[in-house]
Design a protein around this nucleic acid. Structure first.
Lengths: 238, 238
DNA sequence: GAGTGGTCTAGACCACGCA
DNA sequence: GCGTGGTCTAGACCACTCT
């Protein structure tokens, strides 16, 4: 573990309000306290409060209405994998179980990698792992993860079963995901995919190719995610 | 046409910088003028400038680096349909041709609509249209659009061929899209879809179900979009 | 009219990258 | 050490909604 980082106030308020919404302190359709009330409650000024609310609004937790206030929005019943937080926190409160297919191993980068790599990444080698994620005992995601082996000692021996990769990166290496980009396609499931996701061959699956930036400007996290959307849609805001 | 609305300064600067990036005034990898320089150049203060840059960053046009500056980012070569601007502006400079399959008609809302409707929407009836969008002569999107018939006189007789629906809504009815949400699935193409998108039956396509909010709080725009991702991926940021 | 969110100003201090 | 972006304050005026 490492010493904690200071957390900006707008981020702190964002987390508080988000937790209150998820915990039902503020329910769907409720009016949040007004911006001025939040200022007083948490000892901030309006721009700071507004920054928190702006993020909540972008993430779909609230809707702002001029002259009325901020209203808690219907929480998406689907899987919000288009958010930044990674798969684990993307499914809300539902239980997500993980099976490791390939434990983290150090290897060469694939020859035709889905994103261009920097020289530094190429030289560092690649940490590789495969996981299948289950939601209510249905396999939903088949994740293949790649990241450069930059200042991540002992990562290949850590236990991933109950923690998300994001948690481990944050707790042990102080790595935070800042943002990312992705390409989305619909493809037929090949043999490997259909086996892991319990689908028929050639059944359509969603394929996400993601590149995530971290607070280490040299370190990126790459995922190739195959997603069974038979029962759960992928949800996003824009 | 209607009288123009006043445009906030942060929005104005956002549009200017966005245009400069798209026009190549600032090229990929270039450093944008610093925030303080932009303040002087456009006569704004830093929070205002930062609001513009923040949006540019969210939309993927720039990356901000503390201590260095804002760097113009690789423009996505794929189709950025996950952005707010609608299909037409989502494909950058490439030519998007549209074929109208069903001209706008007034009808009843479908019995099992993909999103819940307000009482007002149900009573107003539904404007319905179908279009196919081509990129470089390949059919990419099969769009089915629905919106409530609220204060939209004569919309069923307007010409959609060369203008986007969004342009018509903005120019004639002063309707702007503010934000939206969507569900994404991978599904097999049925007969109708495969005919319009020139695909084989059961070939995987992306299915987007979108609900968009406008500056009229009672008016929402709904789309069901079937997307051929054989050649072009859908691009998004998060 | 009162209260809400939307926009904007004019400063301040800090953390980071680079020369 | 200097300039960069990151955070924050303490105000201001406006547009909108509701009563």
């Amino acid at each position: 573990m490492v010493s904690p980082k200071i957390i900006p106030q707008h981020r702190r308020l964002y987390e508080i309000l988000r937790k209150h919404i998820l915990d039902g302190v503020y329910k769907e359709g409720d009016l949040l306290p007004s911006e001025n009330e939040l200022c007083q409650l948490y000892g901030m000024t309006r721009p700071t409060v507004r920054q928190s609310l702006s993020r909540l609004s972008n993430d779909g937790y609230i809707r702002k209405h001029q002259g009325k206030g901020s209203i808690v929005h219907n929480l998406p019943k689907e899987i919000g994998i288009l958010s930044v937080s990674g798969t684990t926190s993307a499914v809300g409160d539902r239980k997500l179980k993980t099976t490791i297919i390939v434990k983290p191993v150090l290897m060469q980068w694939p020859a035709d990698f889905m994103f261009p790599l920097t020289q530094l990444e190429k030289e560092s080698g690649c940490i590789y792992m495969e996981r299948v994620r289950f939601l209510e005992d249905i396999p939903i995601f088949y994740d293949i993860t790649y990241l450069a082996n930059l200042n991540l000692p002992r990562i290949t021996v850590r236990q991933f079963e109950n923690k998300s990769l994001f948690q481990i990166l944050r707790n042990y290496y102080r790595i935070e995901i800042k943002s990312g980009e992705q390409r989305i396609k619909a493809i037929p499931a090949n043999k490997k995919i259909s086996r892991f996701l319990h689908l028929k061959n050639d059944q359509p699956v969603l394929h996400l190719e993601r590149k995530m930036e971290t607070n280490n400007p040299d370190l990126f996290l790459y995922s190739s995610i195959f997603c069974n959307t038979e029962k759960y849609s992928i949800f996003g805001r824009f």
